[in-house]
Nucleic acid binder design. Structure first.
Length: 831
DNA sequence: GCGCAAATGATACC
DNA sequence: ACCGGTATCATTTGCGC
């Protein structure tokens, strides 16, 4: 029979000592299917120089071992001409019966005197299969094979909850066809925040066609979508039942790897309920790493929080990655918050006045928002999976470095390349201990208010450098012959020069392919904007930008600090070159950082600037391009807090439409309180629009007087700082750490990653001197502990308002003292 | 106990 | 451990006196 289907999830299991691949997917007519296929596991051996390959192969082919109850044998060995890091090598392809045997056999063959190195022992078997059989996750395939009856499948010891099972004889990629998975979003609420404590109170489920809360907390006047069960046992069982009946392709949660699923597992274990949600009846498994994750066979379990924090967060404005913040930004829905810690406290005290209906609806809201967020982000997950050719499950949890690596691994075949090994633990330690190399150049601005500004920037600077100068570990060579020569590459004080062969190597070629594909996507986007094309564009862009960082990442297979440092060296060279040329052309460079340059037009026109831009581009390498970022009416650059020199990475520009581009200022920093951010934003706007500081001075004085008169709502005085590690790990106990400790004592859920909120209140010390000496952490309070007349107005004026505005006024010659004078006094002075 | 520089820590830029 | 270096700034820590 032939079946057209879309692969969604992959796994492999042993059948009679052999590993078989199972692909779970959807058929063209929407049925859930499982395709069973084979793949021969293998790895590579590189021989030492002068080794008799035939003899060596013979010797390797005889390897046979007993290990962990398995009889591991080499099934056959082939001698192949391959490439490793671009160089020709002879290699033995060593086939085994079961991927598990690789780990056993590689140790035996590694010890042979003929063996120089072993390769590709750490390639995941699913990845191996996808490469060998040219399968493309989430795209349409035709499978030829035999349909298996339920009975035949049972003989393999499986009970598969799918509609069709096919044993493949061949599998063929057909085309990229857009696919929307059937999903079930879920969210649990529990009586405690810590996994292992308390019990599950309710579980919500949501998709387009379902919105449901299951709870064992009974109450009257419940809406239809609330289903009551007897107890927690019935709750978990009902959850399982719904998941099994609904048959989603993806089970979606928000922070579900970190909370919902581990919690569910602990409670299920406690009640001796099997959490066998897998399509083969298997239980959910947890991978314990630094970042725990969970896997359900056949059912792609997606933790949207992970995907967002890994892949989407760089473009988010949200100050936290909480479901509420992210949903507001991405889908424009405001989450209705309730006080969860209050409910927890009430439950602990046995207080019965909990509004269960409201709590249930809150719970449902989370599941619904998760479902909506998924709908929004699915194109991003799917397009990324298609670009790198890895299964959805892996992609949804991968960091950019992993994605870059997946992309490379899946494309080595066309270069006949053997994959580099993953670094050993020792290697990682060594790499992490290495000194830093010099990165980008940042131009020191002169503090002032500027008019008529243009900003040019390099389009994808680092990727274009990698491509232009063929920067890769495979092209690095020791002589200048037929090579690109780097500018001075700096490692601290040491300076070096590197040479990269001019024959294009696989990483720059693959990177160029990403960029060329993106150009095509951009063209299509011009014709018609679709979420899929936008997601593809985003994926291609971010992946190509991540390649430079990948070279410098200690966990990378293709780690090369020489490459990373060469890239930044070229970057500095071209940025400086363009700065010089802009100045020479009669413009005035104000500022530059990494790949962008801001300069004043002076007496020149915008058109002249654009003509000059075209001229600059004619002198750049083909794959490099300088673009106009924008023209600005005005811009302000300030001094550093200490000294008179201009602060880098801190400026505000006024766009012609009246909007502002603000970088680095307190306004854009989440660890400053709202009032200081608001005041700074306001005066930056006033100054940039008016070209003077006249009206903003009065405005600031007004705010200072309001603070002094205790008129500012405590809410605007909250300082938010993230806890980057566990409370006990801190050497310096800052205000947020002190507050976190207090919160822990109160039984509130606090740990690494929590955003700690506090307000600085009046201290206990009396007398001006003693007051000033009291540590800020001693005066820090939880926001709801501080009444309107209790905040420390001096602190907010001196530490939050003045620092945020002082250096802006300094541009106009207005000293700090003048800000502190009252409005009236100033008027008297004027008379 | 005081005043200071160094250390620690968070966040942003690109 | 889950992309890099560059940069600013607040607050605490700890040293010398």
């Amino acid at each position: 029979m032939q079946l057209n289907f879309i692969p969604i999830d992959f796994d492999y299991v042993d059948v009679n000592d052999k590993s078989v691949i199972r692909i779970f997917g959807r058929t063209a007519d929407g049925k859930r299917c499982c395709v069973i296929d084979n793949c021969e596991p293998y790895f590579w051996l590189l021989p030492k120089a002068g080794v008799d390959l035939q003899e060596y192969a013979k010797k390797v082919s005889k390897v046979e071992l007993e290990h962990a109850g398995r009889h591991a044998i080499v099934t056959r060995v082939e001698i192949k001409d391959k490439k490793f890091l671009g160089k020709d090598v002879k290699a033995l392809q060593v086939f085994v019966q079961n991927p598990k045997d690789i780990i056993v056999i590689k140790d035996a063959v590694k010890r042979m005197r003929e063996t120089e190195a072993k390769k590709e022992i750490d390639i995941n078997f699913v990845t191996r299969y996808i490469i060998e059989k040219n399968v493309r996750p989430l795209m349409l395939h035709a499978v030829q094979g035999k349909e298996l009856s339920k009975d035949e499948v049972k003989k393999k010891g499986w009970d598969l909850n799918v509609d069709i099972i096919v044993e493949a004889s061949s599998i063929k990629f057909l085309r990229d066809e857009s696919f929307e998975p059937k999903i079930l979003a879920f969210d649990i609420e529990a009586s405690e925040f810590e996994v292992g404590k308390g019990q599950i109170l309710m579980i919500s489920l949501a998709d387009k066609n379902i919105q449901k809360v299951i709870t064992w907390k009974h109450f009257s006047n419940a809406p239809n979508n609330i289903e009551f069960v007897h107890d927690e046992v019935a709750l978990i069982k009902r959850f399982k039942e719904i998941v099994k009946e609904y048959k989603p392709d993806c089970l979606v949660g928000y922070f579900s790897d970190g909370f919902d699923l581990p919690y569910l597992k602990v409670r299920a274990d406690k009640h001796k309920i099997k959490l066998n949600l897998g399509l083969d009846g298997s239980s959910i498994t947890f991978l314990r790493g630094i970042i725990p994750s969970s896997k359900i066979t056949g059912l792609v379990n997606i933790d949207l929080y992970k995907f967002i924090s890994n892949i989407i967060s760089p473009i988010l404005q949200s100050e936290t990655l909480s479901l509420g913040d992210v949903a507001r930004e991405l889908i424009g829905e405001q989450k209705v918050e309730i006080d969860l810690s209050k409910i927890t406290r009430q439950l602990q005290k046995g207080d019965n006045k909990i509004n269960w209906k409201r709590y249930c609806l809150y719970n449902l809201q989370d599941a619904v928002l998760t479902a909506k967020l998924f709908a929004q982000l699915w194109p991003n997950i799917a397009e990324m999976a298609k670009i790198v050719n890895e299964p959805t499950y892996n992609v949804s949890r991968a960091s950019y470095s992993q994605l870059v690596e997946h992309y490379l691994i899946h494309n080595l075949k066309q270069f006949n390349e053997i994959c580099a090994n993953r670094p050993t633990r020792e290697k990682i330690l060594e790499r992490r201990a290495r000194g830093k190399y010099v990165g980008a150049f940042v131009f020191q601005p002169k503090p002032a208010l500027y008019e008529r500004i243009a900003v040019f920037d390099f389009r994808s600077l680092y990727p274009s450098i990698i491509i232009s100068f063929n920067i890769s570990p495979a092209s690095l060579q020791s002589t200048a012959k037929n090579a690109y020569t780097t500018p001075q590459v700096e490692f601290g004080k040491k300076k070096k020069i590197f040479y990269f062969n001019k024959t294009r190597s696989f990483i720059p070629i693959l990177l160029k392919k990403l960029i060329d594909t993106r150009k095509e996507v951009k063209k299509s986007l011009k014709r018609k904007r679709t979420p899929i094309l936008e997601a593809r564009d985003y994926g291609l862009k971010t992946l190509s930008n991540a390649t430079y960082g990948y070279y410098a990442f200690f966990g990378a297979r293709y780690y090369s600090i020489e490459c990373a440092a060469s890239i930044t060296a070229f970057g500095r060279y071209f940025l400086r070159k363009v700065i010089d040329e802009i100045n020479k052309a009669g413009f005035g460079v104000i500022y530059a950082d990494t790949d962008g340059i801001a300069f004043t037009l002076g007496k020149k026109t915008e058109k002249q600037a654009l003509n000059f831009l075209a001229k600059l581009n004619r002198n750049l390498p083909e794959d490099m391009e300088l673009e106009l970022e924008n023209f600005y009416t005005r811009g302000i650059f300030v001094t550093k807090r200490t000294g008179e020199i201009g602060a880098k990475k801190k400026y505000a520009l006024l766009v012609k439409d009246g909007s502002m581009k603000i970088r680095g200022f307190e306004t854009v920093r989440r660890d400053w309180c709202n009032i200081s951010r608001k005041v700074q934003d306001k005066i930056l706007g006033m100054i940039l629009k008016e070209g003077s500081a006249d009206s903003s001075l009065d405005y600031v004085k007004g705010v200072i007087s309001d603070i002094r008169n205790m008129k500012i709502p405590v809410e605007d005085l909250i300082i938010r700082t993230q806890l980057k590690k566990g409370v006990e790990e801190y050497v310096a106990i800052g205000p947020h750490v002190a507050i976190a400790k207090k919160m822990l004592q109160l039984g509130m859920p606090v740990g690494a990653g929590s955003l700690i909120e506090y307000v600085v209140a009046q201290g206990k010390q009396k007398g001006k001197k003693a007051k000033a000496k009291e540590r800020i952490r001693e005066k820090a309070r939880l926001p709801d502990e501080v009444k309107q007349n209790e905040y420390d107005s001096d602190y907010y004026i001196e530490h939050q308002i003045i620092p945020a505005v002082e250096h802006i006024f300094a541009i106009f010659g207005i000293p700090k003292e003048q800000l502190l004078e009252s409005k009236k006094q100033r008027k008297l002075h004027e008379f």
